[in-house]
Simulated assay, not measured.
Amino acid sequence: MSQTFFISDHHFGHKLIIDFENRPFVDTEEMNASMIAKWNQVVNKEDTVFHLGDFSFLNKEKTQAIVSQLNGYKILILGNHDRGRSRTWWLDAGFDEVSAYPIIYKNFFFLSHEPMYMNKQMPYVNVHGHIHGQKYEGLHYYNVSVEQLDYSPVSFEQIRDAVVVNEEQ
């Protein structure tokens, strides 16, 4: 049975992010290889992955080489560092779908790159990235930046169950 996963902010090829976010890598080559391996440890070929932005700082050829190594049907929601390139650029790089706007998934998740304002009456959980090692407080936010997830995609069920458990406390 196929699963759906979420992750964001890989910043493939971005040398400075290693220091900015205290990532445990010596250089971008080690970082890229480790993040590809962690992705493929949890994602199977028949799974779907929503990448919530800031995927790669590399050129199209190198980005394509990374995307082609990653398991799953890959959907990209453009992040602030992705928006300088067109939807077509990202599709050519190997993503199966690309959205410039947030997506509502299963009437439960509001998928966006940046955290969106969610008041207490909102029926959604905002699954987002962008803020890397930081976390928004409250039941309506779930940060899927790689730093929050040990660089591995997280499943729909894991997020849903975490939110439901927190709601009951």
Rank of each mutant, 00 (worst) to 15 (best):
D19A: 13
E21M: 07
E21Y: 01
R23C: 09
P24W: 02
V26Y: 12
V26A: 13
D27S: 09
T28Q: 10
T28Y: 01
E29R: 08
A33V: 01
A33R: 12
S34A: 15
S34K: 10
A37H: 08
K45D: 13
E46M: 03
D47L: 03
T48W: 04
V49C: 11
L52C: 05
G53E: 06
D54H: 02
S56Y: 01
S56D: 03
S56P: 06
L58Q: 12
K60T: 01
K62S: 13
K62I: 00
T63F: 02
T63Q: 02
A65M: 00
I66C: 02
V67K: 08
V67S: 01
L70A: 07
L70R: 06
I75D: 04
D82Y: 02
R83N: 12
R83T: 14
G84Y: 07
R85N: 14
V98T: 05
A100N: 14
Y101V: 10
Y101E: 15
Y101Q: 13
I103K: 07
I104E: 14
Y105M: 07
Y105I: 01
N107I: 06
N107W: 03
N107E: 15
F108P: 00
F108W: 12
F110K: 11
L111A: 08
H113L: 12
E114Q: 13
Y117N: 10
M118V: 07
N119R: 06
Q121R: 11
Q121D: 14
P123H: 14
Y124V: 10
V127Y: 08
G129V: 01
H130Q: 03
G133P: 00
E137S: 14
E137D: 14
H140W: 02
